[in-house]
Amino acid sequence: MKKLPILLAGLTMLGSAHATVYQFDFTAKIQEMVEFSPLTFTGGAVASSTLSGSLVSVGDNITGHFSYDTETGLFSSAGGSAMYAAPAAQNSLDASIGGNSIGLSDTTYSSTNVQVANNATMLGGADGFGIANVSANAFASQMMALSFFDKSGQIFNASAMPGELDFSGFNQSSFYYTYSSTATHAMMGANGALTSITVTEVPVPVPEPETYAMLLAGLMALGWKARRR
């Protein structure tokens, strides 16, 4: 009977060390667009743009998906706002127009970061949650971002990475998209408002590798004690 507590301890460790990844689908509508050329210092508001290689227009409907990993490490923190980023974290953000992805292909760099603001100074005491993907390839760089704000500052009690969020508590939301050509540095920017957001299935937490190692060590210890008897 002395074997049982050891085995139960191993199983407890197996269930306790894990990351939780929350996933969401969203839709948004582009409300404003601009184009600008730093070479000619010309640009301004536009109704549409083909700079990215496909047509993007005011009024286009965006469909997308994002996820955030609660175990993402803290990257920076100041004034009630914290940035979370880590290469191995399961944070993602992608979007499409008319079924065509607006994400870059063959990327040489891609990073998705999460920002949590609790009574942030830079937001006038508001709370906020944001997720952004910055990527680049040989031809361009771009950013996609979603931002949510609560002017009352009641959503968060701390700037720690949150658990599952109820986005109905935020009173303002935005979608941003920028694209910049590597060759000409010409830039296109679009922004709009979210029209819907839904929670998709939260996957079953996957134990971390070190947890498997601890459990294996526990089982080996059981076997060794049994052989001695």
Rank of each mutant, 00 (worst) to 15 (best):
S81V: 13
M122Q: 14
Y84T: 07
N91Y: 05
A120V: 03
L104A: 03
A82E: 01
G125F: 02
G98I: 09
T108G: 15
L93F: 10
T112A: 09
N113W: 00
A88W: 08
V114F: 03
D94P: 00
A82I: 00
I97K: 04
N113F: 03
T107N: 14
M83A: 15
Q90W: 04
G98D: 09
S110D: 11
S101W: 03
A89L: 05
I102D: 02
A86V: 10
A117P: 03
N119V: 05
T108D: 15
A95Q: 03
V114D: 01
A117E: 04
T107A: 13
A88F: 12
N119H: 11
N113Y: 02
G98E: 10
N91T: 05
A89I: 02
N119K: 15
A85Q: 13
A82D: 14
Q90D: 14
A88E: 15
G98T: 10
A95T: 07
S111D: 12
Q115C: 01
G99Y: 07
L123Y: 11
A117N: 08
N113Q: 15
N100M: 09
S101H: 05
G103V: 07
A82Y: 02
G124S: 08
T121A: 13
A95P: 00
Q90K: 15
A82S: 15
Q90V: 11
A89W: 01
T121E: 10
A85T: 13
D94Y: 08
T108N: 14
S101V: 05
T107R: 13
G98N: 10
S110F: 03
Y109N: 07
T112V: 14
Q115T: 15
I102M: 10
A117I: 01
G98K: 08
A86S: 14
A85R: 13
T107I: 13
S96T: 11
G98Y: 09
Q115L: 07
S96C: 04
S110R: 10
T121R: 05
A120C: 08
S81W: 07
I97R: 08
V116G: 04
V116K: 00
G124C: 09
T107F: 11
A86R: 09
S110C: 08
N118G: 00
I102K: 01
A95L: 07
L123K: 04
V116E: 01
G99K: 10
Y84P: 04
G124E: 06
L93E: 06
S92N: 15
N113A: 14
Q115F: 00
N118I: 01
S110Y: 02
T121S: 11
L93R: 08
P87C: 12
T112L: 06
I102N: 03
G98R: 09
A86F: 12
T107Q: 14
